[in-house]
Design a protein around this nucleic acid. Structure first.
Length: 526
RNA sequence: GGCCCCGUCGUCUAGUGGUUAGGACACAGGCCUUUCACGCCUGCGGCACGGGUUCGAGUCCCGUCGGGGUCACCA
C-alpha cells in the first residue's frame, strides 16, 4: 500500500515554525516511503480571504522544498482539497452516523447543557451528559421542535470499555471511553466540526499515516470512534512532540512574541533581521516578521536547507554524531522510530549555527546570486546588475568568507558598493584612528604615496608594500592598518585590509584617503 | 481538577542492563591575527528524586516530584 500523509494547515496568514516541523516530518515520511504527501486546507471556520491567508503558507512550504503531490494548485484525484468545499461529504457522514445510532440529535440549549456541566463541576463530579434532550427518532425530533428547540448532532460515545492506540512514536496509549464526552459534530446551523471533517477527509483521501503534533493525542479517541462507527479502516497515528519556546517546555506559540523578546538570543536574531529589513525597505509588522514565522528567514536570506536541517533535528536524530544533512539525505534516513518523545525547545542560536554551516558549503556563484537582490533592493546595485557589479560582489563575497551569515549581511559591506564621494565616515572611528593618534595623518599621507605607485595593485603586493612601509617607519603594523581602514571604508571593522584595498582599486583608495584627510584637516582633534 | 504525554550537560541529542555517560550548539580560557569573522586546542557542565528487580540500572518495575498537552456549537 502506498504511504499517504497529509498536512492540514488553516489559512492563518503565516507559516509557523512548529507547523513547518510537522509538515516536514509528514513530507519526509512520505518521501522516504516513496509515498504521497497531501496538502489539505482546513478552512471550515474562516471563509474570507482564504487565498490571501494561504499564500504565505504555500510559499513558505515551497521555499523549504516541502512540495505536495496533491493539494492546492496541483489538484489530485481526491479533491477538492479545501474543507470548505467538501461539506456534502461531512453532512453525509453525519447522516450515516445518525442512521447507525452512533450519533444523536441533541435539543438542549447551550445554556441547559452548560448548566449540567457546571453542576457537575460544583459537585466535583466528572461531567457526564444526562442525554436528557437526546432525540433518536423522528417522533422525538418533532416533540422537541414543537417546543421551538434547535438541535446539534452529538456523538453517542461509549460509556464503558477502553481504547488502545498504537502510536508509532509513543507506543500503546490507553483511553477510557467513559471519560470521553458526547462531542458535537454538527452545529445547529448545519455546519460540521473539525474532528468529523478530519476523519472523513483522511478516509476519503486515503491517508495511511496521520502524523501530527502531540496536542492532538487526546483528541484521537473521538476520531477513532467516528471512523470505526463509519466502518473506516483507520490510519496509523504518530504524535510528534511539539516545538517549545526558547529555554522552556511550553508549546511555541505565535501569540507570545513579547515573552520571547525577553530571551536574548531570540531578540538578537530579530534585531539582526530588522537591520536587514530596514536596509532593503521591507515592512516588518511584528506579527509577520519574527523568528517564529518562516517568512522571516526567507526575507533576510537564510538558506532553506539550514532551516530544514535544524528542524529535522528538533525531535529526530540519526545517530550520535551526524548533524548535517541535506534534504535528500534526510529523506534517505528519516524514520519515525527515531523521533524523540520529549518536546524540544526552539533555539535561535543553534538554528544560526546550522545556517553558518550551510552557508559555508554554498558555492561562491550561488552566494552571489543569493546576495545580489539585497544590494539591489537597498539601492546599492542596479537591476539588472552588469557583469562588473557581479564581479565585485563575487570578490567581496570571496574576501568576506564566513562573515556573511545570511544573504542580507552583504549590506554590512556597503562600502564596496558606494561611490567614493558618497562614502559615510564613522566619526567615532575617525576620532579614534585618525584624529587622536599623534602621527596618523602623517603616516596616512605617506602611505598614500606608496599606494599611488604600487604595482600591481593586488592583495599580495599591497601586503608586501605595507610591511615594507611600517619597517621603514619603525611602527607597528596596527598603527597603519586601523587608520587606513577608516580612511577607505569609513568603518573600524571590515574585511581583510589588503583584500579591501585591492577590491576597491587604486583610484577609490586614493580618493577616499583624500576625503578622510580633508575631513580631519577641516575639523582637527579638539 | 480529570485524563493523557514527557523527564540524560544551559539547549538539541546518542545511549534498548556492564560506557571514564559520547557528540553538537552555547559558554570560559588559550592559540592564530590588522579589525571583525573563521579555524584550532583546552576546559566547564547532565542521567529529577526515592524505593525495588539484578552480581550490576540512565536503561526494567513501582511511587514521588517536576514540566507540558487536552478537556468548545475553535482548528
Amino acid at each position: 500500500m502506498t504511504v499517504r500523509t497529509r498536512f492540514a494547515p488553516s489559512p492563518t496568514g503565516y507559516l509557523h515554525i512548529g507547523g513547518v516541523r510537522t509538515a516536514l516530518f509528514c513530507w519526509l515520511f512520505a518521501e522516504r516511503h516513496a509515498g504521497r504527501f497531501i496538502l489539505r486546507i482546513d478552512d471550515t471556520d474562516q471563509q474570507r480571504n482564504v487565498q490571501e491567508a494561504l499564500r504565505p503558507i504555500l510559499e513558505g512550504l515551497k521555499w523549504l522544498g516541502i512540495d505536495w503531490d496533491e493539494g492546492p494548485e496541483v489538484g489530485g484525484p481526491y479533491g477538492p482539497y479545501y474543507q470548505s468545499e467538501r461539506t456534502e461529504l461531512y453532512e453525509a457522514a453525519v447522516e450515516e452516523l445518525l442512521r447507525r445510532g452512533f450519533a444523536y440529535r441533541d435539543y438542549a440549549t447551550p445554556e441547559e447543557f452548560q448548566a449540567e456541566r457546571e453542576a457537575a463541576q460544583a459537585d466535583k463530579r466528572e461531567f457526564v451528559y444526562s442525554r436528557r434532550w437526546m432525540a433518536e427518532t423522528p417522533a422525538d425530533y418533532a416533540r422537541f421542535e414543537a417546543e421551538g428547540r434547535q438541535s446539534v448532532v452529538r456523538l453517542k460515545m461509549p460509556r464503558e470499555g477502553s481504547l488502545t492506540i498504537n502510536d508509532l512514536i509513543r507506543g500503546q496509549v490507553e483511553f477510557q471511553w467513559a471519560r470521553e464526552q458526547d462531542h458535537v459534530i454538527q452545529r445547529a446551523d448545519g455546519s460540521c466540526l473539525y474532528h468529523l471533517a478530519n476523519v472523513v477527509d483522511d478516509q476519503a483521501m486515503r491517508i495511511t499515516h496521520v502524523i501530527r503534533a502531540e496536542e492532538h493525542l487526546s483528541n484521537t479517541p473521538r476520531q477513532v470512534f467516528i471512523g470505526r462507527s463509519l466502518g473506516y479502516e483507520m490510519p496509523e497515528y504518530a504524535h510528534l512532540p511539539f516545538v517549545a519556546e526558547p529555554g522552556s517546555k511550553v508549546k511555541l506559540s505565535k501569540r507570545k512574541l513579547d515573552k520571547y523578546l525577553k530571551n536574548r538570543d531570540f531578540a538578537d536574531l530579530l534585531d539582526h533581521g530588522r537591520r536587514i529589513a530596514e536596509a532593503i525597505g521591507l515592512e516588518t509588522r511584528p506579527e509577520e516578521f519574527n523568528p517564529v514565522v518562516v517568512d522571516f528567514y526567507r526575507e533576510i536570506g537564510f538558506l532553506s536547507e539550514a532551516i530544514v536541517n535544524y528542524l529535522a533535528l528538533l525531535g529526530w536524530s540519526l545517530d550520535d554524531r551526524t548533524e548535517h544533512f541535506r534534504p535528500s539525505e534526510l529523506v534517505q534516513h528519516f524514520s519515525l522510530d527515531r523521533v524523540n518523545r520529549a518536546p524540544a525547545s526552539f533555539d535561535p542560536v543553534k538554528l544560526q549555527a546550522f545556517q553558518d554551516y550551510h552557508m559555508q558549503q554554498l558555492p561562491l556563484a550561488d552566494k552571489t546570486v543569493m546576495v545580489l537582490p539585497y544590494l539591489q533592493r537597498a539601492g546599492r546595485a542596479p537591476a539588472p546588475a552588469g557583469a562588473d557589479v557581479e564581479t565585485r560582489v563575487t570578490q567581496v563575497l570571496q574576501a568576506a568568507g564566513d562573515r556573511i551569515k545570511v544573504a542580507g549581511d552583504i549590506l554590512d559591506y556597503d562600502e564596496f558598493f558606494t561611490p567614493d564621494d558618497a562614502l559615510v565616515f564613522d566619526e567615532k572611528a575617525i576620532d579614534k584612528r585618525l584624529r587622536k593618534p599623534a602621527d596618523a595623518v602623517g603616516l596616512l599621507g605617506r602611505f598614500r604615496a606608496v599606494l599611488a605607485e604600487c604595482e600591481p595593485f593586488d592583495a599580495a603586493t599591497l601586503d608586501a608594500q605595507l610591511h615594507g612601509f611600517v619597517e621603514v617607519e619603525g611602527i607597528q603594523i596596527g598603527q597603519m592598518i586601523h587608520a587606513l581602514r577608516v580612511a577607505v571604508t569609513g568603518k573600524s571593522v571590515g574585511l581583510g585590509m589588503f583584500d579591501t584595498l585591492a577590491i576597491l582599486g587604486r583610484e577609490s583608495c586614493l580618493a577616499r584617503i583624500d576625503r578622510a584627510l580633508q575631513l580631519v584637516q577641516n575639523r582637527p582633534a579638539g
